[in-house]
């Protein structure tokens, strides 16, 4: 095939693949030719994603990545990888005044530490192939925080920094690493965020998007590009996907 816009002959790991954005990225990457290995905590929902994978030699591995033992086991079972998409994440709005170590640890574990530990283990076990592409699911709130975002915005900003460190440390393998900073995307996390506020607040927010809120496939299309050789000179960057939200009033 002469176009680089495909994922044939690539093996790609997707975390958070049991739901929302990660699920769609697994499906899209597979449609574009990749063999995908999906991971998540919920056996049922991961199986659902697995059933949607139509071709190739795919795998599914259940793991609670906050559990070091399960994370290590996951890495042990992995083949060498051409791509990793980090989609596991949680959002828990919490005002500064009531923060506790427990709250900080919870969000930073899931949104930051497990990504670092995964990269540490995968690289140490020599499962990162030359020219591999790493993609992180970040948020516009990393650079444009919101009230109550000390945990979530902070963890995503940290993740965007980490992505750049990967580029520097793995340059000898020509590994690339990029982030996708999405605004509101319709997933179960969106439903959860809506519950933390109210439907009215969410409707008001959604009205500020010239193109409306995003769908998981809007993110997965960008992820496919970042995983493919079409983006082979792109690294250490963040692609913003916001349907025009950050442009301001329209």
């Amino acid at each position: 095939m002469s176009t680089p816009f495909h994922l044939h002959n690539k093996v790609i790991l997707v975390t958070g693949a049991s739901s929302g954005i990660g699920k769609q990225i697994a499906i899209s990457a597979n449609e574009m030719g990749a063999d995908v290995i999906i991971t998540g905590r919920s056996k049922e929902r991961l199986e659902e994603t697995f059933k949607s994978l139509k071709k190739g030699n795919n795998g599914q591995l259940i793991a609670d990545l906050q559990n070091q033992e399960e994370l290590n086991q996951l890495v042990e079972s992995l083949p060498e990888l051409d791509g990793i998409v980090h989609c596991a994440g949680i959002v828990k709005p919490f005002p500064i005044k009531f923060l506790t170590q427990e709250k900080i640890t919870e969000t930073f574990d899931v949104n930051y530490s497990i990504q670092l530990l995964l990269m540490a283990q995968i690289s140490r076990k020599k499962k990162l192939k030359k020219n591999a592409s790493i993609v992180f699911s970040s948020s516009i709130s990393a650079a444009h925080p919101h009230k109550g975002g000390a945990l979530y915005s902070g963890s995503k900003a940290a993740l965007e920094s980490f992505s750049k460190v990967i580029v520097l440390e793995f340059s000898y393998l020509k590994v690339r690493s990029n982030c996708i900073a999405s605004a509101m995307v319709k997933t179960p996390m969106y439903e959860y965020a809506q519950q933390q506020g109210t439907k009215e607040q969410m409707d008001e927010h959604v009205n500020k998007y010239p193109l409306g809120v995003g769908l998981p496939e809007d993110v997965s299309n960008a992820a496919v590009f970042l995983l493919s050789d079409a983006s082979r000179w792109m690294t250490g960057q963040t692609i913003t996907l916001d349907g025009g939200f950050l442009l301001g009033d329209f």
């Binding site: 709005p93 919490f94 005002p95 005044k97 009531f98 009230k147 109550g148 933390q196 506020g197 109210t198 607040q201």
Partner: peptide, 9 residues
């Protein structure tokens, strides 16, 4: 909405 978050927290 911030006060709402504070109540919840």
């Amino acid at each position: 909405s911030m006060l709402g978050l504070i109540f919840i927290a």
